[in-house]
Write a protein that binds this DNA or RNA. Structure first.
Length: 423
RNA sequence: GGAGACGUGGCCGAGUGGUCGAAGGCGCUCCCCUGCUAAGGGAGUAUGGGUCAUAAGCCCAUCGAGGGUUCGAAUCCCUUCGUCUCCGCCA
């Protein structure tokens, strides 16, 4: 959510930043509405003051038995109430328009974010590891999994349709092993506190992290009005909603291993094969709540925490920085981690790490005590550390052997219960 | 799922239609007193918003949230969320 006061003061900053994301100037419309709201508010408040005053006088008049005066005053109040109601309607209508407008506008990219229209303009930051050279043609993860009879898309389709999978045996175990491995590193080494949050949330929680109102179509909604979380970012970040945090408890670093549910509306035809794009997948999520002045450094730190998993698993990856055109709605700056997939001969996204500034904090009213009588909005950051399903895909493809077996990476061995090779 | 009770400021807790943004206590801040890690006295101590110089002042709203009744609501009514108790059910 955007700070209307800040827009009033520096509209050009907003229009410039939105232009970098390909948007038309917005502030003229916004400030116009804002002016209308405030003008009506003034009129309404004056009427309210008049009503309050007259009402008190009625009380006094009744006290001394002056019914005539009371009646006159009642007429006065009735007039004021008319004005209040009329203005109220006007204010509600205009405020709704204004809020809808503000809620649907994306966050401002930081100055140092590269300009660009789409993902082609994303910038490579660095590469780590060298893709392995195979002396055979590497197979796709789903071919490997199906051949092992531990990855079954057909069976999943019978009960749930497309974009679902049943993992079994050693591959199911590997999903669990990866999750435990990631959680252990993030909690024991990187200082994140483990959480088990709700997987079903109310719309206001999704509004807080900015999946709503714009991305309703990407969510699964239940008959009770709950939504299945598309990422634990929603649950973890909303832990601080409507609260005022003591400054010395910051930064808050939280992690959770949860399933994620995405309708994938609009991605029909994309990644239809295999486990890359599913309606349901597991993910270890990282969320940091920090003071504004710490968010840039925290962003770099969080990137390192996510990278650490790939390094330990010996998976080749690269770090890219998203350009303005590819930046997510709530983000001011985002790094993506892309892992090497031999079968596709390319790097594919496995983690996204974003600094949202105070954007989400405003939407959920999450503040910290900056000084006596001065509460400020926190900054929120989130990142995958990592997407478990895609990590499993990467392990299968990068550690496959010619006979279709999978060698378990050393780092994962302690979690695999003695299994060294899946065959 | 059934029956009932409750939801007030940082905390505890009064308040059942008017002068209540809200008594009192605790906590906290400042001052005074006190020759001292105590006691006492005094003052202050919510949030959001409008006006405005992002001052002072004035004004509006907020007693879980939303709506209603009323000239007037923390107080009455409805809806909703949450907490607690009993019964039922269940992993």
């Amino acid at each position: 959510m955007h700070d209307i006061k800040a827009i009033r003061q520096n509209p050009e900053i907003y229009d410039k930043a939105w232009a970098r994301r390909g948007l038309e100037p917005q502030t003229i419309t916004i400030l116009d509405k804002d002016k209308l709201v405030r003008r009506a508010l003034q009129v309404q408040q004056e009427a309210e003051a008049a009503r309050n005053k007259a009402s008190k006088q009625i009380g006094a008049a009744m006290g001394r038995g002056d019914k005539e005066a009371a009646e006159t005053l009642k007429t006065e109040v009735a007039g004021a109430k008319n004005v209040i109601a009329m203005m109220g309607e006007q204010i509600d209508a205009e405020k709704t328009v204004l809020n809808d407008l503000l809620a649907a506008l994306p966050n401002l990219p930081f100055d140092d974010v590269p300009d660009g229209a789409d993902e082609d303009a994303n910038v490579d930051i660095r590469k780590h590891g060298t893709p392995r050279t195979f002396d055979f043609t590497p197979k796709a993860h789903d071919d490997l999994g199906e051949a092992l009879e531990m990855m079954d898309f057909e069976t999943a389709a019978k009960m749930s349709g497309s974009r679902f999978v049943v993992l079994s045996g050693k591959l199911a175990r590997m999903d669990r092993a990866l999750s435990a491995f990631m959680l252990d590193i993030q909690t024991e080494e990187n200082g994140y506190t483990e959480h088990v949050p709700p997987f079903l949330v109310w719309p206001q929680a999704l509004f807080g992290t900015a999946q709503l109102p714009k991305f309703e179509d990407d969510q699964f909604k239940t008959t009770t009005g709950h939504y299945l979380i598309p990422t634990a970012e929603v649950s973890l970040t909303n832990i601080v909603r409507e609260s005022i945090i003591d400054a010395d408890t910051l930064p808050l670093r939280m992690t959770a291993h949860t399933p994620c549910f995405r309708s994938e509306a609009g991605s029909a035809g994309r990644d239809t094969k295999g486990m890359i794009r599913q309606h349901q997948f597991n993910k270890v999520e990282l969320v940091s709540i920090v003071k504004p002045e710490d968010s840039a450094a925290e962003h770099e730190r969080m990137l390192g925490c996510a990278e650490e998993i790939l390094r330990r698993l010996e998976l080749p990856y690269k770090v890219i920085e998203l350009c303005t055109g590819d930046l997510g709605f709530g983000a001011r700056k985002t790094y993506d981690l892309e892992v090497w997939l031999p079968s596709q001969n390319t790097y594919r996204e496995i983690s996204s790490i974003s600094n949202c500034g105070d954007f989400q904090a405003r939407r959920m009213n999450a503040r910290y005590k900056h000084a006596e009588k001065d509460n400020r909005f926190v900054h929120t950051l989130n990142g995958s550390g990592l997407a478990v399903g895609r990590t499993l895909v990467a392990v299968l493809e990068n550690f496959q052997n010619q006979d279709g077996s999978i060698t378990i990476p050393d780092a994962l061995l302690p979690y695999m219960g003695g299994v060294k090779v899946i065959k």
